[in-house]
Simulated assay, not measured.
Amino acid sequence: MGSYPDTVNLLEYLRSRSQIDCDSLDLELATELGPFVDCTSNQADSYLELLLPQRKAILERSAALGRQLLSEYPGVKYEQLAVEIAMVNLSLAITPLITGAIHVMSNPTLTSTSEIVENAQRIANLCRRIAPDFDMSRLCIKVVATWEGLQACKSLTALGINTLATTLFTMEQAILAGEVGCIYIAPFVHELKAFFDATYDDGGPNLNLCVEAQRYYKERHCVTRVKAAGLLNAGEAKQLAGVDSMTIAPELLRTLSNTHEAEIGITDSSIFERETKASGQKIEEHSFVNEERKYREAFARSYDGKGKWKTQEAINIFCEYQIKAEGLLRDISVTSPTQRDLLLQC
């Protein structure tokens, strides 16, 4: 590699300003560009990873264990349980390559608070069962930022289970997530659809939500931290330098790793740098945790209704991949001898 006088590697510079996480379950990527702190994942990541030939053993092992444990979880369909096991297995595989937590997403098709709580507890139990020596403080459950999902986070916090509020597009969601004790929120810089449809124009990034939420939490000494998600390019990453954390997809990670720029120019790009220098009044405090009607009305109005629409669109996409993953596990046929061999590996 040639020298770059008076420049810095962009990925390493960002690591000096923010926690950098891997938004992928790709073991080769984590080895190549790590160490990362956390690893975030979702139903789409998991489904696409399970299609890879090198993941066949995890796919079959998860199917076998799902059949074995099904009777222990009345009311849960085999394919749902098997997907949960597969997602836990994929996340556990990457833990030796990261220094922080794995973020496993709960089933996005579940809509009631009680269902989400039960689902998250089951994921935690599966994690303990598959890896008894795993430090459970390194597990974080990603929960969709609906009213019901965030109320589930409140219950899970009381149970000692870490949560992250995902599919988050508004300050109303951010405020409630802080009130219920989420350790992270993941504001989406872009609509999720922009990552699955190259022709889709979502109108540009919403970077200010990350700034506003982080400032709100710090002013009130909240435990909740901002983990920016859904970045599309290096320019957005530079602007977010200084955010608590950002989780970055593989293609952009490689771009950042191969980019060298003058440090002063990168620093000047940061909206957090400008926020630090600016003196402003505190953001007005709100409380929604015990005010469902107030929250729903404020959320519905946020960004002229676009926040609510973007949230539902993102949830719908994750639901599609949940269903695809269930179909993949449903179609796995495990013969008895192989099943015994696979179960011995669990």
Results as ranks from 00 to 15, higher is better:
Ser279Gln: 09
Asn208Lys: 13
Ala194Thr: 15
Glu285Tyr: 06
Thr224Val: 03
Lys308Asn: 11
Arg225His: 10
Ile266Glu: 02
Lys193Met: 12
Thr267Phe: 01
Ala234Tyr: 01
Leu252Glu: 03
Ala314Tyr: 09
Arg274Ser: 13
Ser270Cys: 10
Thr224Arg: 09
Glu236His: 12
Leu207Ser: 03
Leu253Pro: 02
His260Arg: 06
Ala198Arg: 05
Thr311Ser: 12
Asp202Thr: 08
Leu256Asn: 07
Ala314Glu: 06
Glu291Cys: 05
Thr259Pro: 06
Pro250Gln: 02
Ala234Pro: 00
Thr199Asp: 10
Gln214Lys: 01
Gln214Thr: 03
Ser269Pro: 01
Cys210Gln: 01
Arg220Pro: 03
Phe299Ser: 07
Gln312Glu: 13
Ala300Met: 13
Thr267Gln: 14
Glu292Thr: 00
Glu219Trp: 03
Cys222His: 12
Thr247Phe: 06
Ala249Gln: 08
Arg225Tyr: 03
Ala262His: 02
Leu192Ala: 14
Phe196Asp: 11
His221Phe: 08
Glu285Ile: 11
Thr255Arg: 12
Lys306Phe: 13
Ala278Asn: 09
Ala314Cys: 10
Ala300His: 14
Glu275Ala: 13
Gly204Gln: 04
Gly305Lys: 05
Ser270Asn: 02
Val223Thr: 13
Glu263Thr: 00
Gly204Cys: 04
Glu261Thr: 01
Val289Arg: 11
Ala213Ile: 00
Lys193Tyr: 07
Val289Met: 09
Thr267Trp: 01
Asp244Cys: 03
Ala241Thr: 05
Gln239Asn: 02
Thr259Ile: 01
Leu256Glu: 09
Ser269Asp: 15
Leu252Pro: 04
Val211Arg: 08
Lys238Gly: 07
Thr276Pro: 00
Leu192Val: 06
Tyr217Cys: 04
Leu240Trp: 02
Ile283Ser: 06
Glu263His: 00
Gly235Ala: 02
Thr247Ile: 07
Trp309Leu: 11
Arg225Ser: 14
Gly307Trp: 12
His260Asp: 01
Thr247Met: 03
Lys238Val: 08
Glu275Val: 04
Lys294Pro: 00
Ala194Trp: 07
Ile266Asp: 01
Asn206Pro: 03
Thr259Asn: 05
Lys282Gln: 14
Tyr216Pro: 06
Gly203Tyr: 14
Ile315His: 08
Trp309Phe: 08
Arg293Thr: 02
Arg296Gln: 14
Gln239Arg: 14
Tyr303Leu: 15
Ala314Gln: 09
Phe299Lys: 12
Phe299Gly: 06
Glu263Phe: 00
His221Ser: 13
Arg254Lys: 12
Val226Ile: 10
Lys310Gly: 00
